[in-house]
Design a protein around this nucleic acid. Sequence first.
DNA 1: AAATATAATTGACTATATCAACTATATTTA
DNA 2: TAAATATAGTTGATATAGTCAATTATATTT
Lengths: 144, 144
Amino acid sequence: MCPLSMQDNIMALFYQFKGRMLQALSETGSSIAPMHVKSLHIINRKSPCTAQDIALTMGRDKAQVTRLVNDLIARSLVFKEPNPNDRRSQFITLTETGQQQVLVMAKVQKEVMEFMQKDISEEDLAAFNRVALAMTENLSAAGE
Amino acid sequence: MCPLSMQDNIMALFYQFKGRMLQALSETGSSIAPMHVKSLHIINRKSPCTAQDIALTMGRDKAQVTRLVNDLIARSLVFKEPNPNDRRSQFITLTETGQQQVLVMAKVQKEVMEFMQKDISEEDLAAFNRVALAMTENLSAAGE
DNA sequence: AAATATAATTGACTATATCAACTATATTTA
DNA sequence: TAAATATAGTTGATATAGTCAATTATATTT
């Protein structure tokens, strides 16, 4: 259990996971970028959703979110409505097409996850999940 | 053990890990980009190392590698020598400064890893590591 | 010797990401 | 309530990451 070899394992897993997700996504035929996928998921989960919500959830710059949302609007995946509580901000909502896209992406994610978990026991998966959660908590605690 | 919640856990872990590594790296004072770090590790491990080796190991474009190596040379972290076996290519080697930089980066990685593993038992870590390896194998098998 | 392959470079381009300045609105406080 | 301050979002400039096609100089194959 040497920390360095574990580092390598984690990095390799990250790398493979990312690559597989990208490939699976491109195989759906929809030429949608990873950042677009993440934004759509956030918009799908949080309602109402403002640009600020997206920026905070993704931990990214407001400027980038503005451009991201503009791209999504240009692709007819989302639209904006005025926020009745605050005239500075707007609510961002999925269009019909956007909702369909979210379904496709969820399916792709599920398939990659299932492929990744093939031949791994329920107990092992549960343990992995539990440790991953503990690690995430350790890392996020480091911030403050 | 629902696949979707596990997906979220993995993504969150990846995100936190990446962020912590970036932060820890910037705290060393060396303003070095992630891709530079990766290249230095590769050059450190493989000797002799050509631009082609870096491109293959990182799975990136040759053009990008050329520019990456030029940056590293400009920062006096590596240098080039003629490859005696092939006059088209050159060997890329760490300078003294480059070797020091690799040591600093390895220390940073180790610290983040240890922080991440805090209060997690040896058994759990071993299980995590084993499952991570199995998952990586599943994912890489998917390619062919 | 000619054709083909490979290593590296360069130019042009696109995507991703961040910072600082700005506009418009909200909120706080004096 | 008027002035100061904070916040939501946009824009411009710039940096980093990544790709494609063309080119040069060697190597290898036929």
